[in-house]
Design a protein around this nucleic acid. Structure first.
Lengths: 228, 228
DNA sequence: ATCTGTGATGATCGCCCGATAAACTAGCCA
DNA sequence: TGGCTAGTTTATCGGGCGATCATCACAGAT
């Protein structure tokens, strides 16, 4: 911004940061704060963490709710910067390798205490942005994965995935997601090697999909149902 | 319970319930209340829901925290009344049928808005009872399932499950659990037929376990790892 | 009918919360 | 140097919170 200061740059300014920098710094720290304390955490405690006084927050954000909304925006948009669309759909590479790489990168982005906690808090509040995210996972990740699986199995890729297919993908996706919850929310011991967990989960998902595809090809029936 | 009342039982008492009944009624309603509002919900609003005044709560519970603890106890112990130990270990029935029935009953017990919300709230707070429950799922459910799987595959059942086996079971279990989260927390559309979801998930889990067991029998190697 | 113990309430305390207004202060330009 | 403006703090308000206490109301014993 308006940063001239031709000379005398010697002493860095200790406070008085530019408004934009200050704002984004506040949002970043507020994200960590609310991740730990929940959104019931007080503005005074937050200000203490920021090293400023509480009323100063209200110079940058009209209300606590507005600050919280910015926290959501930041957190929810973070993992979207990966650009997974191309990664998943790049048919010059084997499907399994694409899926393995995608889930390694995706979980690198969301498997941390901060992201998972804010995600769960907002999910419990039933916020629109949470519903939006879940819908996006369905449309941009699971549907895409299923289309690639169908292509790989030599099936038609036009039609939308069946409800049973989608559920299979959700259970697979949720199983991986729950690894992060166990590790960072429950703080329970998990298999150290995240990549191997993904690999094993992929094994059984792909095997399951093939099986479902076969039984759907042989005759037009619902997937195997062998309840005793 | 000094409940004599030899005659005159005609008119049921409209208020003035016995202390124990009142207490458990409070805990039940408080569970619903905190499930919706979170534990930040106020005692006044809770009392309004109960149809009494706020100070009355303090006649039955020394503090809000004590009431909350009773809510936890009630919620966490609820699904344990099933008696799954025998169900899972009854080798007179086929393994798959046992697992199918167990997960249908277990999810009947925990897949509701109340249970899942309280569980997630307490998980985010990092409460001991939550850690205890996660450990119990591991020891009493997953380890047992894996032992039965090993028995079914003709493997030794003495040794504790390997970390990779446990992770496989966790991903499977977590995938099913996440179905409930999607339905009752995110309120997202899910496959209507819960039993079929369980059946499909079981298919791929059992197939995955067999595969892992085979590769572990052939040579003592880690499960297939086919990253391209 | 009166007494007594307990279920239930009204009034209130001290505290912390989100938010506001006024006062102060540091950097910028004439 | 003397303002002007924007960043920051001090003081404070109204309100809701958890919790307490004195008081009221009612069922059962006498």
């Amino acid at each position: 911004m308006n940063r001239k200061t031709p000379v005398k740059r010697v002493r860095a300014k200790q406070r008085r940061l530019s408004a934009d920098d200050r704002r984004s710094e506040f949002v970043t720290k507020a994200t960590e704060f609310f991740a730990e304390e929940g959104f019931g955490g007080g503005t005074r405690a937050l200000a203490r963490k920021l090293g400023v006084t509480q009323p100063l927050l209200y110079r940058y954000f009209p209300s606590k709710d507005d600050l919280i909304k910015e926290v959501y925006r930041k957190v929810y948009l973070e993992p979207l910067e990966i650009g997974w669309e191309k990664l998943l759909s790049d048919r010059s590479r084997p499907l399994r390798a694409r899926l393995q790489e995608f889930y390694e990168i995706y979980t690198d982005a969301i498997f941390n205490r901060k992201w998972l906690r804010i995600y769960l808090y907002s999910g419990l509040k039933g916020l629109d942005i949470n519903r939006w995210y879940v819908g996006m996972v369905k449309d941009k990740i699971l549907t895409r994965i299923l289309r690639e699986c169908r292509h790989d199995a030599g099936l038609a890729t036009q039609s939308r995935p069946s409800a049973a297919e989608l559920e299979l993908a959700w259970v697979f996706h949720g199983g991986i997601f729950y690894y992060g919850v166990r590790k960072y929310i429950y703080e329970a011991p998990v298999l150290k090697d995240k990549a191997q967990m993904i690999s094993d989960a992929l094994d059984i998902f792909l095997a399951g999909f093939e099986r479902m595809a076969e039984s759907a090809t042989d005759r037009r029936r619902a997937p195997v149902k062998v309840v005793g």
